[in-house]
Design a protein around this nucleic acid. Structure first.
Ligand code: ZN
Ligand code: ZN
Ligand code: ZN
Ligand code: ZN
Lengths: 135, 135
DNA sequence: CATGTCATGACAATCATTCTCAACAATGAT
DNA sequence: ATCATTGTTGAGAATGATTGTCATGACATG
């Protein structure tokens, strides 16, 4: 009941070759640039379906906009560079333990959690703040 | 340079008496219901200024909408009931250690983090799934 | 009270996301 | 291959939260 269309294939391929989180609008534009015209509504629908199926991860930036990225299946978290978008997937057992301990302590059930790290990677830090030669 | 106006006082008082996270639109309506008319734009401006000043916390729900809540000053996280909105503030030293360890391991600097827990509190779980008398 | 600013609010404008629905196309059967 | 079935697409409208505009209003101080 999930048909394989030109549009879905194109989007899946694009995501496979895109290491960083991208918005639906960006993906739509990237497809257009690549000569693969796919309607914006279709990009939204497809990327959301993929998110529900666990095929992509969703990240919300500060203003609430949703970004998508092809990720390893299964629960994990991210460390993202705020400058270049470089993303590291984190297994983070420590967070899992923390979450379940807190849930227990406060008598909550069905506790989900989100945890994301945003920083500046070595390359970007060097480029911005300068090399090791001092000021 | 921060003048004390009727509107800001009203909003501050309202937040003082509101234990759960609320949207700007909700706060605007609550003020109207209380006979305190405050423009929607003013609510947005004020609540954002308070957030920048660290006087309220911001939480983004699944669809990206921003919710605000008067919280203790300083960095902390939350455990929120998805049914009734009951909120517990968490000191969460475990998360702080995890975040800084990961930052180190991956050679990132200036790493910020977000971590939020959403679950169902005891009262709501009992109401929804039934009491302790079995199925 | 006068006066200088900052603050307010009604409304327009943005902008991401969702909805609508007629035209289309993937799939499976004939 | 042809066809019928039914999920899919896309252009544009609609939604809804948030932001911008700017003339008017109201703190705070002398
Ligand atoms: Zn970087
Ligand atoms: Zn986790
Ligand atoms: Zn509850
Ligand atoms: Zn923390």
């Amino acid at each position: 009941m999930q048909r394989m269309t030109r549009q879905r294939t194109a989007l899946a391929d694009l995501l496979d070759g895109t290491p960083d989180f991208r918005s639906a609008q960006q993906l739509h534009q990237m497809l257009k640039d690549a000569g693969q015209n796919v309607g914006l509504a279709t990009v939204y629908r497809t990327v959301q379906a993929m998110a529900e199926a666990g095929d992509v991860d969703v990240l919300r930036i500060e203003d609430g906009e949703a970004l998508y990225r092809r990720c390893a299946r299964g629960h994990h978290h991210h460390l993202v560079c705020r400058e270049c978008g470089k993303t590291v997937e984190l297994a983070g057992e420590a967070v899992e333990r923390w979450a379940s301990r807190i849930a227990h302590e406060h008598d909550f059930v069905d506790v989900d959690h989100t945890a994301e790290l945003v920083g500046t990677c070595r390359e970007c830090a060097t480029r911005i703040y300068g090399g090791g030669t001092g000021a």
